[in-house]
Write a protein that binds this DNA or RNA. Structure first.
Length: 343
DNA sequence: TGCGATT
C-alpha cells in the first residue's frame, strides 16, 4: 500500500517526540469538539506489534488525547496499515495526516472494476479513472502464484459523485488498446464473506464428506479412473505441481493459486450459490462457489464456478456430476479452462 | 459448446 498524501516524515517509533513542553490546545480547551476536521488524525504504517497503550503514549506526549483507536482487520486481527521500511533509513516512518471526516459525500465512493486487460498496470488504471475525480486508493488483484493480473480491481474516489460519474463514463467502455469492455460498479463491502466461509467449514468436516443424494453414485468410481475421466489422459500429480516452481504459469486446467477451479454449465436461470454448495460439498472441501449472473436481469447466465481445495476431491466431483441430471437439465462439469485467448 | 473473480 502506497501513501497517497505525505506530510513528510513526521515521527519515528524509536526516537519520536518525547517532550511534554508543547502547548497544543486540546479540542476540549478550544471548544472545537464538534468539528473534528482539524483535531482528528489518521496514522498509517504503525508497527504491527504496537499496543493501544504505546499508541496513546506516543501521541499523548504531544497533547491531550480525547480518544484514540487502533484499527484492526476483523478477521486477521492485524493493524490495517502496513509498515514500510525505507531502504535508506531502515526505520519505521509513520504517516500522520488529518482524518477525512466521515460524511455522506465520501461514503460509498469505492468502485469494483472487472474485465480489465491483463496487461493494465495500477498506474494505467488510475490514469483511466483520474479524469473523474481524486483517487484515494486503487488496486489490481493478481494471481497468488503467478502474480499475473486477474483483470479486476478497485478504485476509491474522494467523493461519491465522482464514483457515480466514473460509472457513467467508463462502464461498458473499452479502454484504449483493449479488446473487451470493462465493467464498473460500486464495490461490495469487504466483510460478509464470512457466511460463505462458515458454509465451507461445514462441508469440510469429515462426517459431512460424501453424504447426501450422490453418496452411492460417488462410491462406484475408483480414483484412478476418475482422474483419467476428468482429464481424458493420465493424471497430474498435485504433489509434483506444488513442488515444481517451473510449472508456475503453465496452463494446467483448473489449477489456481488457491485450489482447483471447476466450470459448471447448464444451470437454470434461477440458480443460486446454494445449489452449487449442495452439489459439490459432499465431495470434499469447497473453497468458493459462484453463479454468474446477467448484469441487468440478475438471472443466472447458465454457468458457474466451484473452487475445491484438493485435486482428488475435485476430480471425484467432476466425474460424478458431469452428466448429472438436475431438474430437466443435464449438467456439464469440467475443470475450468482459459477462455481468455481465443484465437 | 456456454469459462468469473469483491481488496
Amino acid at each position: 500500500m502506497e501513501p497517497q498524501v505525505s506530510n513528510g516524515p513526521t515521527s519515528n517509533t524509536t526516537n519520536g517526540p518525547s517532550s511534554n513542553s508543547r502547548n497544543c490546545p486540546s479540542p476540549m480547551q478550544t471548544g472545537a469538539a464538534t468539528d473534528d476536521s482539524k483535531t482528528n488524525l489518521i496514522v498509517n504504517y504503525l508497527p504491527q506489534n504496537m499496543t493501544q497503550e504505546e499508541f496513546r503514549s506516543l501521541f499523548g506526549s504531544i497533547g491531550e488525547i480525547e480518544s484514540c483507536k487502533l484499527v484492526r482487520d476483523k478477521i486477521t486481527g492485524k493493524l490495517l496499515s502496513v509498515a514500510c521500511f525505507p531502504a535508506h533509513q531502515g526505520q519505521l516512518t509513520l504517516k500522520v495526516s488529518y482524518a477525512r471526516p466521515s460524511s455522506a459525500s465520501i461514503r460509498d465512493a469505492n468502485l469494483y472494476v472487472s474485465g480489465l486487460p491483463k496487461t493494465m498496470t495500477q498506474k494505467e488504471l488510475e490514469q483511466l479513472f483520474s479524469q473523474y475525480g481524486r483517487i484515494i486508493t486503487s488496486r489490481i488483484l493478481v494471481d497468488q502464484v503467478t502474480g499475473v493480473s486477474r483483470g479486476v480491481g478497485f478504485i476509491r474516489f474522494d467523493k461519491r459523485i465522482e464514483a457515480e460519474e466514473a460509472i457513467k463514463g467508463l462502464n461498458g467502455q473499452k479502454p484504449s488498446g483493449a479488446t473487451e469492455p470493462i465493467t464498473v460498479k460500486f464495490a461490495n463491502n469487504p466483510s460478509q464473506k464470512t457466511s460463505q466461509a462458515l458454509l465451507s467449514q461445514l462441508y469440510q468436516s469429515p462426517n459431512r464428506r460424501y453424504p447426501g443424494p450422490l453418496h452411492h453414485q460417488a462410491q462406484r468410481f475408483r480414483l484412478d479412473n476418475l482422474l483419467n475421466m476428468a482429464y481424458g489422459v493420465k493424471r497430474f500429480s498435485p504433489i509434483t505441481i506444488d513442488g515444481m516452481t517451473s510449472l508456475v504459469g503453465m496452463n494446467i486446467p483448473g489449477h489456481t493459486g488457491t485450489g482447483w477451479c471447476i466450470f459448471v454449465y447448464n444451470l437454470s436461470p434461477d440458480s443460486d450459490e446454494s445449489v452449487l454448495w449442495q452439489l459439490f460439498g459432499p465431495f470434499g472441501a469447497v473453497n468458493n462457489v459462484k453463479v454468474i449472473r446477467d448484469f441487468n436481469t440478475n438471472k443466472c447466465k447458465g454457468f458457474g464456478f466451484v473452487t475445491m481445495t484438493n485435486y482428488d476431491e475435485a476430480a471425484m466431483a467432476i466425474a460424478s456430476l458431469n452428466g448429472y441430471r438436475l431438474g430437466d437439465r443435464v449438467l456439464q462439469v469440467s475443470f475450468k479452462t482459459n477462455k481468455t485467448h481465443k484465437s
